[in-house]
Simulated scan of single mutants.
Amino acid sequence: MIKAVKFVSIPTRDQDRALEFYTQALGFRVVTDQPFGEQRWIELRIPGADTGIVLFTPPGQEDRIGGFMNLSFASDDVQKTYDELSARGVEFVQPPKTEHWGTSAIFKDPDGNTFVLSSK
């Protein structure tokens, strides 16, 4: 039986720039960084989470870099996380907005991949 999502892949044009963003700005930690064909397999973990984030673009998928990602990050306090990440230089395209279902904000990485930051 399927038990969990092991990792999700985020496509990137520049793995070094992406690695710096995800570790320095977002606070993820490196689990694996090793050669993998013409790229590297860079797997990260969010502290306290089990799902991995992989900074890798499958060959032939370069046109999928940038734009809205079907991936949402959760936060206990979206406003506080927004304030902290903004102070670290993370670009938000939508500040925190509260709806009847919770609070969300939208940010993007250096490749233009856009993510929702949402309350749990």
Rank of each mutant, 00 (worst) to 15 (best):
Q61Y: 11
A105V: 09
V116Q: 08
R17C: 02
M69Y: 10
V90R: 02
Q94F: 14
S75F: 10
F107M: 02
Q79H: 14
F115H: 05
A4Y: 06
L44M: 11
K3W: 06
F92Q: 02
A4T: 13
G66V: 08
A25N: 13
N113M: 06
Q34E: 09
P11F: 07
I10V: 14
E38N: 15
K6W: 03
T103C: 06
Q15L: 12
L44H: 00
S118D: 15
S72N: 11
P47V: 01
P95N: 05
G52S: 12
F115N: 01
H100C: 03
Y22C: 00
T57S: 07
G66P: 10
Q79Y: 07
S75V: 04
W101D: 07
T23P: 00
V78I: 09
F28T: 02
A4L: 05
T98W: 11
G66F: 10
E99Q: 09
T98G: 07
L71Y: 12
I65N: 00
R64E: 08
K97E: 11
D50I: 09
G52P: 01
L55N: 02
Q94T: 13
D63I: 09
R45P: 04
V78F: 03
E43Y: 15
F92T: 05
T114N: 06
F107A: 01
L19T: 01
R64Y: 13
D109S: 02
K97P: 02
V31E: 13
P59V: 06
T12W: 06
S86M: 08
T32M: 13
S9G: 13
Y22M: 04
R88A: 03
T23Y: 02
D111A: 09
E99T: 15
F56I: 08
V78C: 14
D33N: 14
V5F: 07
S104K: 10
Q39K: 11
E62G: 02
E84C: 01
D14H: 09
K97T: 15
D63K: 14
D83F: 10
D76N: 08
T23F: 01
E20T: 14
W41E: 10
E43V: 07
S118L: 05
V31A: 11
I10H: 00
D14S: 15
L19F: 00
G48N: 05
A4I: 07
Q39H: 13
P110T: 03
G37K: 04
L19S: 00
V5D: 08
I10L: 11
V90N: 02
F107H: 08
V93C: 06
R17H: 10
P59K: 12
D83A: 06
F68V: 12
S9T: 15
R64A: 10
A74R: 09
L55F: 04
T81H: 04
R45K: 15
E62H: 13
K80H: 15
D76R: 13
A74D: 11
R40E: 05
F36H: 15
D63M: 08
A87W: 03
V54R: 14
D111P: 00
K6D: 13
I2H: 00
S72P: 03
S104M: 14
